[in-house]
């Protein structure tokens, strides 16, 4: 991956103008209901909003709850894409944490 420091990773593929995006975000997605080894509740920390933009359009506006799995994975598709287009992804969580990344849509496989 190009940017290993980012919490956001995508794998993309293109079929004609339809882009398939597999999105993986590193995030604990704590529900606030789990306890640590000492029996104390681990505070909730989870992504509430995740937005993907392509060419100035919001292609996905996801509102998430803590019941989305740790390191959220989302796969979706949209049309009107071409090789080399950039996809802007940003998320924010309930504690004010956030991150964003601009990633290239490509049909080529990356290592």
């Amino acid at each position: 991956m190009a940017n290993t420091n980012s919490t956001i990773q995508i794998k993309s593929s293109l079929k004609k103008d339809v882009a398939t995006i597999r999105l993986l975000v590193s995030h604990p997605m704590e529900t606030g209901m789990r306890k640590d080894k000492k029996g104390n509740l681990i505070p909730a920390k989870f992504i509430q909003s995740l937005i993907c933009e392509h060419a100035g359009n919001t292609v996905l506006d996801a509102e998430l709850n803590s019941t989305i799995s740790t390191n959220p994975y989302i796969k979706f598709q949209f049309s009107g894409a071409k090789d080399g287009d950039s996809l802007k992804i940003s998320w924010s969580d309930n504690t004010g944490g956030k991150d964003s990344a601009e990633l290239e849509i490509t049909s080529k496989r990356k290592k």
Binding site: V18, H54, N57, T58, V59, L60, D61, A62, E63, L64, N65, T67, I68, S69, P72, Y73, I74, K75, F76, Q77, F78, S79, G80
Partner: peptide
């Protein structure tokens, strides 16, 4: 668990965990 609001060009298929 989640609500996915789709854009005009987004296909109506979503996969998540």
């Amino acid at each position: 668990s989640a609500t996915f609001n789709l854009g005009a060009t987004t296909e109506a298929t979503i996969t998540t965990n």
